[in-house]
Design a protein around this nucleic acid. Structure first.
Lengths: 174, 174
DNA sequence: TTGGAATGTCAACAAGGCTGACATAAAATG
DNA sequence: CATTTTATGTCAGCCTTGTTGACATTCCAA
């Protein structure tokens, strides 16, 4: 339960970790940076969404439907990691409001193929533009080398199941 | 509303941005990496918390009280960015359960100074250890240079008010 | 053809955000 | 000293977004 509490001077030896010795303090700073940055990361879309009585869950659905048009509910469930009932509520709202179209699958009629309507694409673009602007700003400020490192650490931080689902999506979309 | 939609080949010129030209696709990948990584980042503490009928809100409170022992409710509100009613609900539970102590301020008796009890410290350590282990693993996998870049991008992604509050916290804690 | 698995929908509940209204006590100000 | 402002806590009620349970439909395999 506790390999923590290690201060400088209590290193376990001179293996490869001596090149990257991490104090609890440094790790805590990383944790806090992650917390605050995620807040900044979602702040702009949240503002837009709150005007429209939508939330982050709607944003996530719009994002991944835009990313993989025609995807199924089940597919989305795997990516988002929520219960299907939770997702369904969000999708129902989006369908009722004319942002998402849900068509019965041609091959397997149990499935529903999800696509954005023009209005859905419009909102998705608005949200995405805001978030990309923030991301672009951060990238520019930090520089290209930092961006490389940023992505590397993030990829190592995802859990592996999720990362596989993510890569699968990315590949199927390109 | 839309400076997006730019593909390679539609650059605006040859200014400094040509060194760091960012396609929408690259930015989207960054956005998704952030989303998935944050999920990985919170997964381990979430598991522990759900056994105890606590949530992320309790974790955040415990974390920052551990970080700045004796801090006030108002202070915490600024850091967490939630309403006092929301925070109060969480703090009340933690005080009732004997994880946090709330003492009337000595200098200003309106204030409450918040500290962790031994039991609170124990849970905080358990949560923190899990999260640090994940962070340490990601850092080791990505390497020291990547960690530098990671922090740089995250800091640029926070909004400036938040970043100032963050630095203030960090300095007062060291 | 029939029973199980997969997929999606509807209903109800809980956690944890939010706002508004209000009470109290202490501090600051005129 | 009287008044106002500040810090905190509490009650009520709302919304979003998680959860589980029950159920309908469709497909597939025994």
């Amino acid at each position: 339960m506790s390999d923590g509490r290690n201060g400088p001077g209590f290193g376990t030896g001179f293996g490869s970790e001596s090149l990257l010795f991490l104090t609890d303090e440094q790790l805590r700073q990383g944790i806090e940076a992650m917390f605050f940055a995620y807040r900044g990361f979602t702040a702009d879309p949240d503002r837009i969404l709150s005007e429209l009585a939508y939330g982050r869950a709607h944003h996530r659905a719009l994002h991944f439907i835009a990313r993989a048009p025609g995807t199924t509910v089940n597919n989305l469930l795997g990516i988002l990691g929520v219960s299907k009932q939770s997702l369904n509520r969000v999708l129902r709202a989006l369908v009722e409001d004319g942002l998402v179209e849900s068509r019965v699958g041609t091959l397997d009629k149990r499935e529903r193929n999800l696509t954005l309507t023009p209005r859905g694409e419009e909102l998705e673009a608005r949200l995405s533009d805001a978030q990309r602007a923030r991301m672009r700003g951060a990238y520019k400020e930090a520089g290209p080398d930092a961006v490389q490192g940023f992505k590397k650490v993030l990829e190592a931080m995802m859990d592996q199941d999720m990362y596989r689902a993510y890569k699968k999506l990315r590949d199927s979309a390109s």
